[in-house]
Nucleic acid binder design. Structure first.
Length: 170
DNA sequence: GCCAACGTTGGC
DNA sequence: GCCAACGTTGGC
């Protein structure tokens, strides 16, 4: 078979991600308290973040849970993708703040995955510590002006971050 | 509260 | 297709 006609295989193995949430709105504790420690990651209205969820996130992938717009901004714990992408129902609801009339049930614009809490870091890993940790220089989170609320993390970055703290299963 | 950086919108 | 205006994000 000609190589150029072969569908490109998705890289095998577990992938890693980081999601941001304002703890005043939805914290890691809120995720732990949710039924099954799981929630739909709804309300994402950025195309790049959507594409990661819709096209690349798979059940079992690792997720770093980041608290933004708070003091201190920090990684709170780890989670995993519990369900692959499906249409974000809040986009269809006219009364929802994330309603988007251009997303239709027969042709959804916005997608979400389900995220399940796995473990809390014994203490949060605050942003300055991440900046100071060798090997994390390339993290999207640390890039100046970075605003992506769903972003990929390399396996190497994941290993470094998760080795910074003891983890307490939830 | 400030403001830099970013994504989106809409006039042209 | 350009780009100014605008709204949002998010650290500080």
């Amino acid at each position: 078979m000609p190589a150029q006609s072969a569908p490109r295989a998705r890289p095998v193995g577990r992938r890693y991600w980081l999601v941001k949430s304002e703890p005043n709105v939805f914290s890691f504790d809120d995720l732990v308290a949710a039924p099954g420690h799981t929630t739909g990651w709804d309300g994402v209205r950025n195309y790049q973040a959507r594409n990661f969820m819709r096209d690349d996130m798979r059940p079992g992938d690792g997720v770093l849970f980041y608290h933004s717009s708070c003091e201190p901004p920090a990684l709170a714990g780890i989670a995993e993708v519990a369900r692959a992408a499906y249409p974000d129902p809040t986009a269809f609801d006219p009364r929802d703040p994330h309603h988007d009339p251009k997303s239709r049930r027969d042709e959804p614009t916005w997608y979400q995955v389900d995220v399940r809490a796995i473990a809390r870091f014994e203490t949060p890993i605050a942003l300055p510590e991440l900046r100071d940790t060798p090997g994390l220089e390339g993290m999207e989170l640390l890039r100046r002006g970075s605003r992506l609320s769903v972003q990929p993390v390399t396996r190497e970055q994941w290993e470094i971050v998760t080795s910074l703290r003891k983890q307490v299963r939830v």
